[in-house]
């Protein structure tokens, strides 16, 4: 790890004021400190946000929306009884990620900003356009079986590793940021960028911007009775997704009144196709319908390497997540969150 200056500002304003281009904001550090150890990242300055007041609140606002402070720990959000009852799909996504130790420390703001788990990004001796623009991409000819099948480019085939973000994308979350030019809201769909020819530009955040909170709009709570996160991975716990899906339905009189579907681990951002959601509305839930929606949700998928299998896996995962959502949110968090094991076979 390279040496760095350590600063502990007393306010958000001070944190932004001391920011310089070589600085990094420190939340839980579970991703940043790890990448500083590998040498993939080497900030000259760490700005510690852990002592800032008021960033760790979960609040219900007057307009019915829910506001999650950026420094709320993943475990605290997932285990907040009121939050988990209202947003069970988000709680399930959170609890399917990382380990108990990491969830106790990792913050929701940090989760939004976590970096790619592509091995070539993490290894400073490999070529990675995302880490060092213009040097090339070793993943394209390397171990790429878990890489993107949607929205990738010649420059980068990495995926976004977050589970939490997939559930936030499905529920149209809004990200509140504060930067040198003041506060603004970023709709979730605009937060992460596809790589194109500039994979180093990972998010819509600008220089010095700090994530303050995530807001869930009031209509997001309407999905609580039929909302699931499904994560397919190489082992049932403490592993990143090969493919995941967040599925939420609002049922009225046996018909689908509203639907949300987002795919995870398939692209550099959570993948949503509005047409796939729209075609579900007014229909009766069922396996054939869900298979068609899943095909639309993953339309255009193509292998970026040794990952042809992910296309069919994405379709099946999306369809199954929809079936699980239609069957109803479990009254208690499953022992194995987001796992296909222990669930009744719906198809």
């Amino acid at each position: 790890m390279k040496p760095f200056d350590y600063l502990r500002p007393a306010s958000v304003e001070e944190a932004i004021a001391v920011w310089t281009p070589d600085a990094a904001y420190l939340g839980g550090g579970t991703n940043l400190v790890d990448l500083m150890k590998t040498g993939a990242l080497h900030p000259g300055k760490l700005i510690d946000l852990n002592r800032l007041l008021g960033l760790d609140l979960i609040e219900m606002l007057a307009d019915g929306s829910t506001r999650i402070g950026a420094m709320v720990r993943n475990a605290d959000l997932a285990h907040d009884a009121g939050f988990a009852a209202t947003f069970p799909m988000i709680a399930e996504a959170l609890l399917s990620g990382a380990s108990g130790q990491l969830r106790n420390v990792a913050t929701v703001g940090g989760n939004l900003m976590q970096r790619s788990r592509c091995a070539y990004f993490q290894d400073p001796y490999s070529a990675c356009n995302r880490r060092t623009p213009g040097v090339g991409c070793d993943a394209k000819e390397g171990d790429n079986r878990s890489h993107a099948i949607l929205g990738f480019s010649d420059a980068c085939i990495a995926t976004n590793p977050s589970d939490f973000c997939v559930s936030l994308a499905a529920l149209d979350a809004v990200v509140e940021v504060h930067g040198p030019r003041g506060r603004r809201d970023i709709p979730y769909a605009d937060l992460h960028r596809l790589p194109g020819q500039t994979p180093e530009k990972e998010t819509a955040l600008e220089a010095g911007d700090l994530v303050l909170a995530i807001r869930l709009p009031s209509d997001a709570a309407a999905f609580r009775l039929n909302a699931r996160y499904l994560k397919v991975r190489e082992r049932t716990s403490f592993a990143f997704a090969l493919v995941s899906a967040a599925a939420a339905l609002r049922l009225e009189g046996g018909k689908i009144a509203a639907a949300r579907l987002a795919l995870g681990a398939v692209a550099a951002k959570p993948w949503r196709v509005p047409a796939a959601e729209a075609m579900l509305v007014g229909q009766s839930p069922g396996p054939a319908l869900f298979a068609r929606a899943a095909a639309m949700a993953s339309a255009g998928a193509a292998p970026s390497g040794d990952n042809l299998y992910k296309i069919e896996l994405a379709r099946r995962t999306a369809a199954r997540a929809l079936s699980m959502a239609a069957a109803g949110t479990p009254t208690r968090m499953p022992a194995l969150p987001a796992s296909p094991f222990g669930e009744p076979a719906h198809v």
Partner: peptide, 23 residues
């Protein structure tokens, strides 16, 4: 030393964490 194995688990303010990733 990367938060993957848990051998360094300790309690900080009563919560279990990976001591290897805590500065």
């Amino acid at each position: 030393d990367r938060g993957q194995c848990g051998a360094c688990t300790v309690l900080v303010d009563g919560r279990r964490i990976n001591a290897c990733l805590a500065l």
